[in-house]
Amino acid sequence: MKIYGEYVKVETRRGEDLVDITDLVSEIVGRSGVSDGMVTIYTMHTTTGIVVNEGEEGLTKDIVRFLSKLVPENGEYMHHHFFREDGRMAVNAWAHLRSILTGMHTSLPVSDRRIVIGMRQRVFLIDFDGPQARSIYVQVIGI
């Protein structure tokens, strides 16, 4: 069995941003040497998420708007206080909570050196508190 992994930087462009990372994942699978197995895409940040869904422009906006309604910015969050370890105020509980709702990783099957993915499916990194350069880890396991 082979295990192959890569850290990748993804730059987001807006405060809330969906970045299609499907091609990036496919490239990593291609050079992993794994023919059949599974790929896991994992974000290293607690204010981002990884999701699989359709990349239609309106839908990507709907995803952001829906999550914003579920977890509004102006709530009474216990997280919002001075965070001594960071030396700054924590003011983004909403971004953490939205991240929990999407989850921070996803896994896809790998078959014949390719990810198995539906015609309308794309893999997205969602930044809830961007823009920033974000790190993700992609690990391919198989034979």
């Binding site: 730059e11 370890e85 960071d86 030396g87 920033q132 350069a133």
Partner: peptide, 12 residues
């Protein structure tokens, strides 16, 4: 300076 924060490329 008392700040722990992720580094960002100048472009970002």
């Amino acid at each position: 300076y008392g700040l722990r924060i992720g580094l960002q490329p100048l472009r970002v």
